[in-house]
Amino acid sequence: MNIAQKKIKDGFVGQKMIVLPPNIRRNILNNDLISRFHVVSSGFFPHAAYHDRERKTGCSEYILLYCTAGTGTISIADRTIQLTPNHFVILPKDTPHHYKSSLIDPWTIYWLHFTGVYADYLHQKYAELKQEPVFLAYDTKRIEDFERIFSMIENSFEERNLEIVNIKYLNFVSSLLYAREMDPLTPGEDKISRSVLFMKKNPGALYSVQELAAQQNLSVTHYSRLFRAKTGSSPNQYFMEIKVQSACQYLYFTDKSIKEICRELGFGDPFYFSRAFKKLMGVSPVHYRNQHKMD
């Protein structure tokens, strides 16, 4: 058997795929909640050797291909691009295209076919990114979200379930397109992002602005200016907000005393902690706990 004969559209070991039947698609079009954005098919192709799909007249839906391993190529219009791990593309509807997995290093892809008025808008936002394919830092939660949504649609085509599924898929696609805006402080993006990540991972630490600036090899003046430009706050104010947010979690989810929480967050003086907490939250830590304590 030659290579050409081995080209396949689907049927990979471990694959998952769902295509909505025509009657279900008609029902969706009559549902005002999800008619403007809905997924008509979705799937997961792991290590998809010989995956090869060509549509000479294109597809009536937009196609999202998100690669997590391996490589492949996509030919569309007059260009060919390579899809590699942690990248995604959205192919325009009604446009001829041809995509295929590498024979040497077959890709693993998550994919969606989606349509609707909002789909048109989202593809426009994709075009505005002016990069193809689009890079995404790997996030296990993103994969878990996709698999959770897929499991929901596997279970039922009931209307209420389809509403939830498509709302979640809209959020999933949006999270790819607005990744930078939704998490502007992505680890490793820049020095201020790294500094903020350090603060979030170490809410109990006690560091001066001088020490935080030194961590990023910046002068205090330059560090403070960049920090305010990115976050809208001074480093001290931002770090305090992180500590108070952590305190809220302790007050809500644990029975730790105020003194214990102070120690966890690096406050030597419970009275100072209470004043700082009330300034940001509008109530004292004790009041906050009484007001929001879990039953």
Rank of each mutant, 00 (worst) to 15 (best):
I192V: 15
L33E: 15
T254H: 08
K256I: 00
F37N: 01
A119N: 06
L122T: 04
Q291V: 06
N171V: 08
E181P: 02
K293N: 10
Y288R: 08
I63R: 09
V40R: 10
R263V: 14
V209L: 04
N171F: 13
V13L: 14
F88I: 10
V19P: 00
D255T: 14
I192K: 03
A213N: 05
V165H: 01
S60D: 13
I261L: 10
Y238P: 00
K243V: 05
L212P: 00
P285H: 07
D120P: 05
F37V: 06
F45H: 12
I63P: 00
D94P: 00
I28C: 04
S156N: 08
P184F: 12
E61C: 14
T84K: 14
G70E: 05
F45S: 07
E241L: 11
A205R: 11
A214S: 14
E163Q: 15
F198T: 05
A214N: 09
L177C: 06
I74S: 00
Q291C: 09
W111E: 06
I143A: 08
L83C: 08
V220I: 14
C67P: 03
M1C: 09
Y62R: 05
P22S: 07
S102W: 07
I109F: 06
T73H: 05
V134Q: 03
F12L: 07
R36A: 10
Q131M: 13
T95H: 04
S208F: 09
G58L: 11
T95K: 09
N23F: 14
A119G: 11
P133L: 08
I153P: 01
C59P: 00
N166M: 02
R194A: 05
P235K: 01
C59Q: 13
P96E: 11
E181M: 12
I34R: 02
S41E: 12
F267P: 02
Y250W: 09
E163F: 00
Q5L: 15
Y50S: 04
E211N: 09
D139E: 14
P270W: 08
G282H: 12
F146E: 04
D52F: 12
L197H: 09
K230Q: 15
K130R: 14
V196S: 04
L206A: 07
V40P: 00
H47M: 06
S174Q: 12
T108D: 06
K9R: 15
I242W: 01
G72P: 03
D52K: 03
M294G: 00
R148K: 13
D255N: 15
N31D: 15
K56N: 12
K293C: 10
C262P: 01
Y110C: 04
Y238S: 02
K100C: 10
V134C: 12
Q245C: 05
R79I: 11
